[in-house]
């Protein structure tokens, strides 16, 4: 019971933090839509092209724009000492990593999920594909959040090279892009692909706590 109480209090804090920084999330989504416009302006308005390319473009842009906000993942809490406080209050680094991952999923990725239907209208993605897109994004976004946790905890003490975090996420997200777009475009083995993506999700979940936890510990020790 105490543990559950602790979790709820942690998420109350996250909710307050994200509510006050809501303009960041809105800017993120605006970036997503603007990049869709730019894609359309650069390729041309023919709808047939997008029925073929649409899903790929959508997933690429989702990946790009959700890695934009990674800098904020731990940085604020780290710089004002709140990570140390949480740790001293009984949250182990691994637990912080898990909780923060889900918080990123809820407060950053879910708004993207909600904006997918609108984006799919713009890119001429059909209804049947939209359903698959939603499922693949639900799974993929959880993996992306875990990878984001790993990369941003690695870069807490990196004061010079801000883009490194995004690069780390993007190189590891190659399988996600491949299988997520595969889920949508390939009709016959839908279930097995969902299975593969869930398998990757479980592996990332297993790796995330200890990798992020170790990096957070290193960052706090050497700050």
């Amino acid at each position: 019971m105490i543990f559950l109480h602790k979790l709820l209090n942690f998420y109350y804090r996250e909710y307050k933090l994200n509510l006050s920084g809501f303009q960041d999330i809105l800017t993120n989504i605006t970036f997503f839509f603007i990049s869709i416009f730019i894609f359309i302006f650069s390729i041309g308005p023919e709808k047939e092209t997008y029925s073929f390319l649409g899903v790929g473009i959508l997933w690429t842009l989702l990946l790009l724009s959700s890695t934009l906000s990674l800098r904020k993942f731990y940085q604020d809490d780290f710089e004002n000492g709140n990570l140390t406080l949480l740790h001293l209050n009984g949250f182990s680094f691994e637990l912080i990593a898990i909780l923060k991952t889900f918080s990123h999923f809820i407060f950053v990725q879910i708004p993207f999920l909600l904006s997918i239907p609108l984006a799919s209208i713009l890119l001429n993605v059909g209804n049947e594909k939209l359903y698959r897109l939603t499922i693949s994004f639900l799974l993929g976004a959880l993996i992306l959040s875990s990878l984001g946790s790993i990369s941003s905890s690695m870069n807490l003490l990196n004061k010079r090279n801000y883009l490194l975090g995004s690069v780390i996420v993007m190189i590891f997200s190659i399988p996600i892009i491949i299988f997520s777009v595969g889920i949508i475009n390939i009709n016959e083995n839908f279930n097995s692909l969902v299975g593969i993506l869930s398998g990757i999700l479980l592996i990332t979940f297993a790796v995330n706590p200890w990798a992020s936890g170790a990096c957070l510990k290193i960052a706090i020790q050497n700050n």
């Binding site: 307050k16 933090l17 006050s20 920084g21 710089e79 004002n80 000492g81 709140n82 140390t84 406080l85 001293l88 209050n89 009984g90």
Partner: peptide, 18 residues
């Protein structure tokens, strides 16, 4: 031990935008 201590760091931990 952690249940019994309060740590005030040299940095202020209050959240500025709240």
């Amino acid at each position: 031990y952690y249940n019994n201590l309060t740590y005030i760091a040299d940095k202020t931990s209050s959240i500025k935008q709240l």
